[in-house]
């Protein structure tokens, strides 16, 4: 059974300096509150893993918390560049960032292999691309047909953190809407933390709901509004203006640092103040 802890205690328990950490969520349910708490606790030298680094890893890379980044698409979706990620790769600011990049299909296969406790994932992929020479992929022959396939090593992060809509008091978690790669990531992890919008007495089945049993998770923490400016379907909406505005903030090193100081290091909630108590309905932002 997962233990339900306050967010700060949860992060202190699961994340250590130098860990391989994956905060997942494919556009939807990105665990911003948890990532910010990792930064506030001063964790360093992390190997950050995420299919789409998004604003959250732009922030984490930009303050120098990461030594290495494993990813498949490092852009601000629909807006453009992640400027802090680019500054780190192009100029080594604020510190050099080692990278390992894959395709989405490759990363998805790596998480699925990790969740299955297999040494590698297999797919038709990478063939003919320059990625083959630059990343961790190998070709294998199918033992039955001889077809040449791509093998990618399983991902087994030290820590996986995801965000979901609800858990009950025993730490059973339910998420719905775009499910991304969260289930595979949690099951691939050595230690797992799920932050949730709210803790309820009983989970009500939802269409398309993905349920993670509490006994398969280590820690659950309540973090209302914890995926903003991403969103939690049915509870919050994606703050598209926040994504557009990030382009301006992240372009300039000093504007970025001032923003992080004010909105992340000085306080617990940089985006919308969605306050709620367990079991109370949370305002639906429309």
């Amino acid at each position: 059974m997962a233990r339900v802890l306050p967010l700060a205690d949860a992060i202190a328990e699961v994340v250590r300096d130098g860990d391989v950490v994956a905060l997942e969520g494919f556009t939807h349910l990105i665990p911003f509150a948890a990532g910010h708490e990792v930064l506030r606790q001063g964790r360093r030298d992390l190997e950050l893993v995420r299919m789409t680094p998004d604003l959250l890893y732009d922030q984490m890379v930009g303050v120098g918390a990461a030594a290495r980044l494993v990813f498949s698409y490092g852009g601000n979706p629909g807006v453009g560049s992640l400027h802090r990620f680019r500054d780190a790769v192009e100029h080594g600011w604020p510190r050099p960032l080692a990278i390992e990049e894959h395709s989405h299909a490759g990363m998805a296969a790596r998480y699925a292999a990790g969740a299955s406790d297999l040494p590698f994932g297999v797919l038709r992929g990478y063939a003919g691309t320059d990625l083959e020479a630059r990343t961790n992929v190998s070709r294998i022959a199918c033992p039955f047909t001889g077809e040449s396939l791509a093998a990618v090593p399983a991902l087994r992060p030290d820590v996986v953190i995801v965000h979901a809509q609800e858990s009950d008091r025993r730490g059973n978690v339910q998420l719905w809407g775009i499910p991304g790669v969260q289930k595979e990531a949690v099951l691939a992890a050595s230690r797992s933390l799920v932050t949730v919008e709210r803790i309820v007495e009983r989970l009500e089945p939802r269409p398309g709901g993905v349920v993670l049993p509490g006994w398969a998770i280590d820690v659950v923490a309540e973090a209302p509004g914890g995926s903003q400016p991403s969103y939690a379907a049915g509870i919050t909406v994606r703050d598209n203006d926040g994504y557009r505005e990030w382009d301006r903030i992240a372009r300039d090193r000093s504007v970025f640092l001032a923003w992080m100081e004010e909105h992340v290091f000085a306080g617990p909630s940089p985006y919308r103040d969605l306050t709620g108590t367990p079991d109370a309905p949370i305002e639906v932002v429309r």
Partner: peptide, 14 residues
Amino acid sequence: TPRTRLPGAGGAPE
């Protein structure tokens, strides 16, 4: 030593 680092592959290759 990239002049411009672009977002990367995403889903495109497959």
